[in-house]
Design a protein around this nucleic acid. Structure first.
Length: 893
DNA sequence: GCAGTCACG
DNA sequence: ACGTACGTGACTGCT
């Protein structure tokens, strides 16, 4: 293999590093008072860009002097004049930067009379001649003049970890120039930061045009007389001398005499022992944690070994597929996809194997469909470790394969153990157990720059690392689950639920696109009419969607009273506008506009954009490992917030239809599940009795709070108030919140709460106890032992502490309700199967389940689902399930 | 990428 | 005295 020479432009990158984190300057100060922002950014650069390259030779070149003391200063006395002085906060980091470079195994180099550019230029030619492939990294685009077939110049784009690769062909593509013509371009344009002029009025565009015609300035000036008269020609003639001088200044030396021979810049790998001391001195906590994790997982042994534990992956091909039959009955499996939407994103490779038998993989996922592999994947007796079992199930389904025996899902386990900081990334979650895996972002990049490395082995080795870590994580993760008494929650709830959800998502829900488009058309007409009215009332045209513009109109031009402010200006939220509606007709029009605009953009256009063309269905993803309480969430699109409360919005539901003719949509929901959970958990006899009697719970609450006897009717206002108090209780009540919600005084709200607690004394007790418990153990639990940590419960900050206290009261309630419906879903799925029903579960919306079924099956379905749901768990109060069916989701009401 | 707004339970 | 209801996701404007 060709040997690699790495040349780094220390000054320009350090400078970039300093300004990349300039806004953090004041925060990043070590205990010794040293600013560390440039050091942190430079260290990121070394970690992310340099360390993975593992070059054979490497040098970081530094300027020996300002540039004045080089031939450039002799040539042009004003060279680099006018540069502002280097800030002292930056200067003080210089010696540490060099030490950091050395500890990362690279040689620092500077030489009197030379700038870093010239050192790099000369080394690059030496290296090229000695047969090395040369990589230059710099923050200065001028160095691209050094690019050749053997020399690639990487220029930082943003910060210091995003780079743009300049090869001769890329330079041709970007500028239409050969690398050496970069110098000619500079000759014409000059350089303001180095303070030398080129030709007056010639910028990049003109320069590129001239070079396209004349190639270089020698040739340009040779033909200058033929040029037709113009201001440009005059300037060129006038500034001829400046151009030739600029060319000399811009030319990087490639033939300087260096006092350091190539052989002496050997890359020496990272010195971890000393690096730890260095990081400790600078208070680099994250870096220290990373090294600790690497050491613990055996990826660093001693101080001089390379970062990555060596893992061999055998590339699977037609002729060696039988090897997977020998893998044994305990393996890791992983299909990698390009992106996060496993319904549609490309599958870019897979890996299968174990530490004992080695890892096998390929970029070609169709190999999984071969009998040799399929029989392993579909064999439930071969136990698999995976990351995100639901995603893997869907990916395999797309290949027509049923994944069986996936018993350890590290993502699920990690989520149950601690919901906080769950970014759903293996690399981050593994760190909790001190295992290190290269983050996907480091391999593929992110956003627009996402790309699968061309080098197949790089991908497969990355996948094998993931697989290997998944094997190693099983033991500690299961031990931790056991410690939390969460094995039941894991084995009997979350893991089987993942299978149920995978089926639901993969099946999808059918959309009547014509219907949705019609709704869109009529919304558009109504929106346009309202818009016109608004502009007339406003006396001007403005962007109604801009809260800023709207605020100026309402509160400055029209002089309406300011009711609430946001961080950035006037609030124009619904509650504010509703208070203002009586004062100007425009306000009501704005409210209508907002409602309709929301429906059109989010629900008509938004939903249409995610319909899969081949089946006219929407396939959402239920996130099973995101919420802090144990609920699911739904994305791409969110099918848990389809409008319902307003009739105009509710119409959207008419577009959700059964996937087959003569089928219907069926929905079943838990009535008052959270209040029932509350009654159960608190053991409050009065509230339990109300449910046992089958009473209207809000009316009963009203009776209690307002002191009415059984014969007195409860009026609507009392019921509404009581309902709000019930909500408040579930959310972790405060008089302020309740007052705000009901539009009553704080004193009144306080009285309501006091009476409520007197009437339901065990609820009050429980609230006090749960807060104390949260304080003692640092977390609260649901009925299924789902945990939520509340570190801020002991904060001295009133706000943080109060928030944690409300959460301590709310999470066990919301979370237990989530447990219940999850259990119900698993039982429902089993019941449908056992009874040979054709009905299919499609959606979950926190306390309701949506199905589709043949019309003639609905009656049986209704009976079955109701029975399964209301007996899913046994509480001290009955569970009430209500159900509805119809031709569309709208009609299932 | 954040803030504001609004859709749901 | 302090100052907010709990849990989500998508879209728009703006820096």
């Amino acid at each position: 293999m060709t040997k690699k020479l790495l040349l780094i432009d220390g000054n320009s990158l350090a400078f970039r590093a300093f300004y990349a984190m300039y806004n953090q300057l004041d925060r990043m100060i070590s205990h010794k008072g040293l600013h560390t922002n440039a050091l942190v950014a430079f260290n990121n650069f070394l970690d992310q860009i340099v360390d993975p390259m593992q070059p054979d030779l490497a040098v970081v070149a530094w300027d020996a002097a300002s540039g004045k003391e080089t031939f450039r200063g002799d040539l042009f006395p004003e060279y680099k004049d006018g540069r502002s002085k280097t800030p002292s906060e930056f200067k003080e980091q210089f010696p540490y930067l060099r030490e950091m470079v050395a500890l990362h195994g690279l040689r620092n180099y500077e030489q009197a009379g030379l700038e870093a550019d010239d050192i790099i230029g000369t080394f690059s030619r030496m290296g090229e001649q000695a047969g090395y492939s040369v990589t230059i990294i710099t923050g200065d685009q001028d160095l691209t003049q050094l690019a050749t077939e053997k020399v690639t110049v990487n220029v930082t784009k943003k910060g210091v970890t995003e780079i743009e690769q300049y090869t001769p062909s890329y330079i041709m593509e970007k500028f239409g120039l050969k690398p050496l013509q970069i110098i000619e371009k500079k000759a014409l344009t000059g350089d303001t930061s180095d303070n030398y002029p080129g030709v007056t009025k010639v910028g990049e565009k003109t320069a590129l045009k001239l070079l396209a015609e004349y190639h270089d300035i020698d040739n340009l000036y040779a033909h200058i007389d033929d040029m037709k008269q113009s201001k440009l020609k005059e300037n060129l003639i006038k500034d001829r001398e400046a151009a030739f001088c600029a060319r000399q200044l811009a030319t990087i030396l490639t033939d300087a005499t260096l006092e350091l021979p190539l052989e002496e810049i050997e890359y020496r790998h990272i010195d971890y022992d000393k690096l730890v001391l260095f990081y400790e001195d600078l208070d680099f906590k994250q870096q220290l944690a990373k090294i600790k994790a690497l050491q613990k997982s055996g990826q660093i042994i001693g101080s001089q070994t390379p970062v990555e534990k060596v893992i061999n992956v055998v590339t699977l091909q037609e002729d060696n597929l039988q090897a997977v039959a020998m893998l044994g009955n305990k393996i890791a499996v992983h299909i990698e996809m390009a992106g996060s939407n496993y319904h549609i994103d490309d599958m870019i490779g897979f890996v299968i194997g174990s530490p004992a038998t080695g890892y096998y993989g390929s970029r070609d996922v169709s190999l999984l469909q071969r009998p040799e592999l399929r029989s392993v994947i579909e064999n439930a007796a071969i136990i698999k470790n995976v990351f995100n079992v639901k995603a893997q199930l869907v990916l395999f389904k797309r290949l027509g394969i049923t994944l069986k025996g996936a018993e350890f899902d590290f993502l699920l386990a990690a989520y149950l153990l601690d919901t906080t900081d769950n970014d759903n990334e293996l690399s981050t979650l593994a760190q909790r157990f001190d295992f290190y895996v290269t983050p996907d972002e480091d391999i593929y990049g992110k956003g627009a720059k996402y790309a699968v490395p061309e080098e197949t082995s790089r991908v497969l080795v990355h996948l094998a690392h993931k697989a290997d870590v998944l094997m190693q994580l099983e033991k500690p993760a299961f031990a931790a689950l056991q410690d939390h008494e969460q094995t039941h929650l894991y084995t009997e709830i979350e893991l089987p639920l993942a299978h149920v959800l995978a089926d639901m998502e993969y099946r999808g829900i059918k959309i009547d696109q014509t219907r949705l488009r019609d709704i869109g058309t009529s919304l558009e007409e109504r929106i346009n009419a309202i818009k016109e009215a608004i502009f007339i009332e406003a006396g001007e045209v403005f962007n109604i969607n801009s809260p800023k513009q709207l605020g100026v109109l309402l509160f400055e031009k029209m002089g309406l009273p300011v009711i609430k402010k946001t961080k950035t200006g006037y609030s124009t939220a619904v509650d504010v506008l509703e208070k203002l509606a009586s004062q100007a007709p425009i306000v009501d029009h704005i409210l209508q506009y907002r409602q309709l605009a929301k429906l059109k953009s989010t629900y008509v256009e938004g939903l249409l954009s995610v319909v899969h063309e081949k089946d006219s269905k929407i396939h959402t993803r239920f996130l099973q490992t995101l919420t802090q309480t144990g609920r699911l969430s739904s994305i791409d699109p969110n099918l848990q917030n389809i409008p319902m409360r307003s009739e105009a919005g509710r119409q959207i539901r008419t577009a959700f239809v059964p996937s087959q003719p003569d089928w219907q949509i069926f929905g079943a929901d838990y009535s008052q599940i959270e209040l029932r959970v509350l009654a159960h958990m608190t053991g409050d006899k009065n509230m339990q009795q109300a449910f046992l009697n089958g009473e209207d719970i809000h009316a009963e609450t009203a009776r209690a709070v307002f002191g009415l006897d059984d014969s007195t009717p409860v009026d609507a206002l009392m019921r509404r108030t009581a309902k709000a108090v019930n909500f408040g209780i579930v959310y972790g009540i405060s008089d302020f919140g309740l007052a705000n919600n009901l539009g009553i005084s704080r004193a009144e709200a306080k009285r309501f709460i006091e009476t409520y607690f007197k009437e339901f004394p065990q609820i009050h007790e429980w609230m006090t106890e749960i807060k104390a418990k949260a304080h003692e153990q640092g977390f609260v639990e649901t009925i299924a032992k789902r945990r939520r940590y509340l570190p801020e419960i002991s904060s001295k900050n009133f706000n943080l502490r109060s928030f944690a206290e409300r959460t301590a009261m709310n999470s066990p309630i919301q979370g237990s309700a989530a447990d219940i419906i999850k259990i119900a879903m698993i039982k429902v799925a089993e019941a449908l199967q056992e009874n040979g029903m054709q009905a299919r579960m499609l959606l979950q919306v926190h306390d309701e389940l949506i199905f589709e079924a043949p019309t003639d099956e609905i009656e049986e379905l209704s009976e079955l689902i109701t029975r399964v749901m209301d007996s899913a768990v046994v509480l001290d109060v009955p569970m009430l399930v209500e159900s509805h069916s119809g031709n569309t989701w709208y009609d299932a009401k």
